[in-house]
Design a protein around this nucleic acid. Sequence first.
DNA 1: AATGAATGAGAATTCATTCAT
DNA 2: TATGAATGAATTCTCATTCAT
Lengths: 204, 204, 204, 204
Amino acid sequence: MATRPASSAAADKRRLILDAAIRVFAARGFNNCRVSDIADEAGVAYGLVYHYFKSKDRLLDEAFLERWGLMLEVIEGARTDEALTAREKLTKVATFIVESYGREPEVMQVVIVEVTRQANTFGRRHWATIQDAHHQIARIVSDAQARGELRSELPAEVAGMVFYGAIEQVLTAWIFGLVPSGPDDRAAAVRDLVETIFGGLDAR
Amino acid sequence: MATRPASSAAADKRRLILDAAIRVFAARGFNNCRVSDIADEAGVAYGLVYHYFKSKDRLLDEAFLERWGLMLEVIEGARTDEALTAREKLTKVATFIVESYGREPEVMQVVIVEVTRQANTFGRRHWATIQDAHHQIARIVSDAQARGELRSELPAEVAGMVFYGAIEQVLTAWIFGLVPSGPDDRAAAVRDLVETIFGGLDAR
Amino acid sequence: MATRPASSAAADKRRLILDAAIRVFAARGFNNCRVSDIADEAGVAYGLVYHYFKSKDRLLDEAFLERWGLMLEVIEGARTDEALTAREKLTKVATFIVESYGREPEVMQVVIVEVTRQANTFGRRHWATIQDAHHQIARIVSDAQARGELRSELPAEVAGMVFYGAIEQVLTAWIFGLVPSGPDDRAAAVRDLVETIFGGLDAR
Amino acid sequence: MATRPASSAAADKRRLILDAAIRVFAARGFNNCRVSDIADEAGVAYGLVYHYFKSKDRLLDEAFLERWGLMLEVIEGARTDEALTAREKLTKVATFIVESYGREPEVMQVVIVEVTRQANTFGRRHWATIQDAHHQIARIVSDAQARGELRSELPAEVAGMVFYGAIEQVLTAWIFGLVPSGPDDRAAAVRDLVETIFGGLDAR
DNA sequence: AATGAATGAGAATTCATTCAT
DNA sequence: TATGAATGAATTCTCATTCAT
């Protein structure tokens, strides 16, 4: 079995199906696609999807958890990195999200559109996990406020919402295809967004 | 009211059904409810829903358009009111949205969760209308930049996204029931959100 | 109440609806039209159709019986007219049917397409009435055979079927719009059809 | 048959469903039966009907095309067989149709009652195919007229209509169950019908 | 592991008919 | 007589999931 045991081939098949599911969910939406669309996209037989995944829901759950987990690690890493200012930390977070979209737009689209915003289904099911990210972001702000680095009169939770909501809004514009999302556009978006939130709109 | 014409009774029934649909969509989600749930909620026979509305989709379309239309009027009104500063204009917009939620949380939930964020279905169908609001908000910023009232180095579109995305994020937290949304909470949310965006996070 | 009592106005309304139903049945088919189509075509309110007719079925029943009754009278009249030869009798019958189509194609279309050929619904319900016509036609033949006017070795029932089936086939071609059905075409059709059946195809 | 490939099992199921559909259409009429009746008659699950056929319409389309295709082959074969007289050719056609009914009355009933006579639905959809048969029959006549075998003063199209209309009328009587349709009855029907049309009704 | 046939519970929509006014 | 709102049973088609091979 050399260096690639049988289970690895299986793992590859599983991956193939999950990736196909993400593309299909992004293209048609979770509620508007059929499991057979996913099998077709993956080039496997209908039943094989059910061999690897218990249900259609599970495909979306896994796609979400995988990516959101990475994001949580990045946010936590940024938050606990004492060498960084709050602005640098949030820039790091924004950059990760935006570059994730740059590399694999379908994944981020699915995560945001099909999961985090679904108040009645997946969003609620994964709410604790989603909240985790929001809390960490708020904590980046509140820690900086405690150090006197950021204004203390603003509630950290609201600041976090402004920051995260702004990123989602930018991604939404990209997802809907209304605004270019090339490498330069992405870098500019991070820069402008951070500068807006940290510097404020008011002229000095 | 004694003189209400006969057509009003019909209009009332129609209204009754549309309102019931909004409540059901908010409670279960558009994709997880049945037309019979709406009929039951309205207390009318199944077929009457189809007497007044061509399809289930149309119910959501109408709910969205009605409310978004009001919002557009308010945004346009704020934008063109020369007596107001940009901060006052955006405060007005934020207040309208937030108070709409306060009065009729289901409508705003449906508008945001079931329509504006659905990249593959309703969101795309109504995209022009949705964009209209975003453009007007950006214009409030760019007009103020032209007058030297706001910093010119920030792109107005990004500023608009930060503003609108922040409001949606706040509403999302309320919709998911994670944060109290009483009258005081709403007023505070508007104040904090506006102050954050205009003043910026940075300590002076 | 002069010469037109109130009941006459009512009778007119009834007629109006029945005629509209015939047009709609012809244009869309009994199974593919709605009662509301009939009301619209007649220019009356939905419910009025039910004031004058017990059901949608009844409309078709009446349309059929009215016309088929006329046809039966003509066939019986021809059959019992001792001054006529069998060829003249059947020419009379064919002419009546064909000219009925000429004057009111919708009625004949409805009678044939929607009633007499519906083996599972109306055709079966009215079978006795339909058969009546077929029997009379066969009798025209058998009487002539008894008189030595027509060949006796052919069963009269088959001869009748050839005659009536031929007429229906001609009407079918007209109904489907494949063949012109102007006055001259109709006269020619009767002549050719009768000559074919009486004279036979064989060269002498 | 032991070597039948796996695909045959599927083809058999498909056949099973199509045959069941034909029986149900014949017994209740296309418009008066439900897809579940077909599934029940075939002894399969509801959904399997849709696994093999796109819609209820398609079942009827296929039943019609399959049988009408056979008939077209027979008619064409008869028409181009130079060893036969026109009378022999049309006898062949009539025999095929009548014996088709003898073997599988439901199929012929469905073909005629549910398709070729439906001016507003299936009849119109398949009109070109239906016409094909009529044209070939007319051509059998006109070819014979050109050879001096049949009277030339009669239009071949009318002769064709008389012939085909007569056959349909005979089948109709059988379908409605008004006339016995045993083997002898069928043979007699063909003989009488052909003799009537070729020899004519007139006594010599 | 892999296939795709088989299952059957939905769910939207239609529309004949009834009924209150 | 006239209106059209109200009713709800009926029916097609969909599609997630299971299962035999």
